[in-house]
Nucleic acid binder design. Structure first.
Lengths: 152, 152
DNA sequence: CAACTATAGTTTATATGCTAAACTAAACAG
DNA sequence: CTGTTTAGTTTAGCATATAAACTATAGTTG
């Protein structure tokens, strides 16, 4: 009886961990492929994530961008440079602090940003179609708990 | 009233999408740092994942390894080469098919594998401590649903 | 005020983790 | 037997970072 209980616990946890593993694989798959956003031509995952982060906040500074993306300032600078060359963003000195750089989207960048937002909206709709309110709540709760657990 | 309903729906879905986003950031953070497994010295995420995939199945073929990891055969070969140089795996021709290569763990590789398994066990216990049976069930269900949705 | 420290961003070199393409040898099909 | 497919390997290149070194600016202290 007691043994059976332990068995069930183990089974439950590896079911969860298996599903998490699959979810992660799926996320990885999605994260790997360049795709088109608007009329902007193909953009790598990193590029569109950066555009999205810039589009979220008017007049973001380079250091803020780095923080938002969770990368080093060097990485953010390199990506911003690349997107500037491609015509998606503009860099300008910050009037309030001569050391700082303000990054903004060009018209092309804005198109890409908007296309990404639309995709995001579609994703949210998909979630809506899949999960009930109750499920969503529990899912968010579990995922947040998992994130906390992963902190250690 | 109807408008309010839509508002609530949007809020629900962006809660989910926000949590997923956070989860992804956390995964990224974890995926970036080499760590020690057993007495094996530091191993990159890719290395330990490959060791884990090899350890899972006795006498895995290179193509199977690639499939399991969700990468190209070329990528699998390169990683196996690297791990062979480091002494974690062995490569041998498959007796059943001269084109094929069988990959197995060395003693060092096995130590790393076992250490990773122990970590995995700890993770499962952590999940156990965090989530009730009911939560787990719903969580798994949601994850599986989202995986399917993400296929498109 | 000057000297020192901290900070923002940039640049460079390097590592990790892939992919595609080209190639070789073996297996399979007709 | 010939032609096609398949397994693995190798090479070149790309994406996405990091650390370190650097320059210029801002802040702090005496």
């Amino acid at each position: 009886m007691k043994n059976k209980e332990i068995y069930r616990d183990d089974n439950k946890d590896s079911r969860v961990s298996l599903s998490i593993g699959r979810f992660i694989m799926q996320l990885r798959r999605l994260e790997r492929s360049p795709r088109s956003f608007g009329a902007a031509g193909p953009l790598t995952p990193g590029e569109i994530h950066t555009i999205a982060a810039i589009g979220c906040k008017e007049g973001i500074l380079m250091g803020e961008l780095a923080a938002r993306l969770g990368v080093t300032k060097g990485a953010a600078t390199q990506m911003a440079s690349r997107l500037e060359v491609k015509g998606f963003v503009r860099r300008a000195p910050d009037p309030a602090d001569a050391r700082a750089t303000v990054i903004s989207l060009t018209q092309t960048g804005l198109l890409a940003y908007q296309a990404h937002e639309e995709l995001h909206r579609r994703f949210c709709q998909k979630i809506s179609a899949c999960l009930s309110s109750h499920e969503s709540e529990i899912f968010v709760d579990c995922l947040d708990k998992l994130c906390e657990a992963l902190e250690e």
